[in-house]
Design a protein around this nucleic acid. Structure first.
Lengths: 232, 232
DNA sequence: CGTAACCTTGACTTTTCTCAAGTTTGGTGG
DNA sequence: CCACCAAACTTGAGAAAAGTCAAGGTTACG
């Protein structure tokens, strides 16, 4: 059975651009895996045994300080790549925030394939460079923005990425209406804040009419310009 | 004239592993450039026209918020790669902190070479993945550490990188004795703090006997275990 | 309908920032 | 060689932002 040919992220993940015969080979070394919300795929510090592509769902990448303060390093949406090729140690935890599907490879299999198929390696390089850009923008957020600016930036980013992640799946979503894939505590762990500070900022934005919130996780952006101004 | 063969970072930069004939080709498309301390090589938002390797010196990568608050994204030491291949826009400013030498390539030349020589592309991928790991560790610092922990982490990192950057140049340095390549203000911009907070933390560490400071920039680590405990 | 998890709110504390002096350092010209 | 200057750094006092601790609401779900 060839999962790749029917794969919903086939044209966006690092396997895009591969020829049919290459895809067939890749299909042999990878396999699908379903993750329930809350289930982990990678553990920081473990030997890096596997790498993966996200097919559907959202995962969080995280580490913690030695005394247990958690920091989320990033989110992985469909077509994003997970894991650490060419290193022995996994640098972060990866945990599904929603029920998810990933396409996993044993790391040695994937590395061998990559070295033999430079087209794949090139795609992985492009993706890694983009991820580095995104991560550096997050450094600006954590280093120089206040709580309000941080939440504004996150809401805009989640809106944008929710659309990008689903647009090929025919469910055209609006970047101004989306469901948060994480709890308030997790938002705090992304933004480097406490849950109370996050909650107060949500309240403030609601009171200012900038956003609407229903059932806690359904967000409507009412005044995009205000958010963009804060995030800039 | 072949700079590459005599290059002090020849075995550590992305050009390591290349065959002699490949090096000769690379030598043709690159050129050396000297930068004085304070001189800029890349400007955020500009069209990405060139990429480079650091040969000697230290550079800072930075961005700022729209209202001008600066944040340093990282430091580039000898053998580190600078610039953004495969994208039209340079994502950060790069400015020399000390007098530096870089090996620059026009981006299209470099990209063409990379696509034709997958060994180089592989090295670049490994380096980008490491840089992503390092950047993510910085996210933990900015998101979850207090001022004291941040400075401790930075001092240990600079000590380690100063050694790594110079060990092939026969000047064997001690990771517990080094010269800071930046001002207090720049340290603040790296750590996401203000200059006053940084200064107070230096004073505290001096008073606690954890470090010695002479001529402002010469640091001796006296109690490495204390710093490591803070940084962990 | 009860419960547990999640979220919000309030009062208070702590950390860092801001603003305003001072002080040290390194360079320059008398 | 010294006095002076500007830039870089340090220090102090008070303000602001975010964190902590402790209740009190909501919501989802069995």
């Amino acid at each position: 059975m060839n999962f790749c040919q029917a794969c919903s992220v086939r044209n966006r993940a690092i396997c895009a651009d591969l020829e049919d015969d290459e895809i067939a080979l890749l299909n042999k070394i990878g396999r699908r895996r379903n993750l329930e919300a809350g289930e982990s795929l990678l553990w920081a510090g473990d030997e890096a045994v596997l790498v993966a592509n996200v097919v559907s769902g959202v995962l969080k990448l995280s580490t913690q300080t030695s005394d247990g303060r958690e920091q989320i390093l990033g989110l992985a949406y469909p077509s994003d790549f997970l894991g650490r090729p060419f290193s022995d140690t996994t640098p972060y935890n990866a945990e599904a925030l929603s029920d998810s599907v990933v396409c996993v490879f044993r790391r040695p299999d994937f590395e061998r394939f990559a070295l033999e198929h430079s087209k794949l390696e090139h795609k992985l390089l492009e993706r890694t460079l983009s991820e580095l850009d995104r991560t550096r923008r997050w450094i600006l957020l954590l280093g120089r923005m206040n709580a309000e600016e941080r939440l504004a930036t996150l809401l805009l980013e989640i809106g944008a990425r929710s659309v990008a992640a689903t647009c090929r799946n025919s469910i055209r979503t609006d970047p101004d209406r989306f469901e948060l894939p994480m709890s308030r505590q997790q938002i705090a762990d992304i933004l480097g804040l406490t849950i109370e500070t996050v909650s107060r900022q949500f309240t403030k934005m609601r009171e200012d009419g900038v956003i609407k919130v229903s059932e806690r996780r359904n967000i409507t952006i009412c005044k995009r310009d205000v958010l963009e101004n804060l995030a800039a």
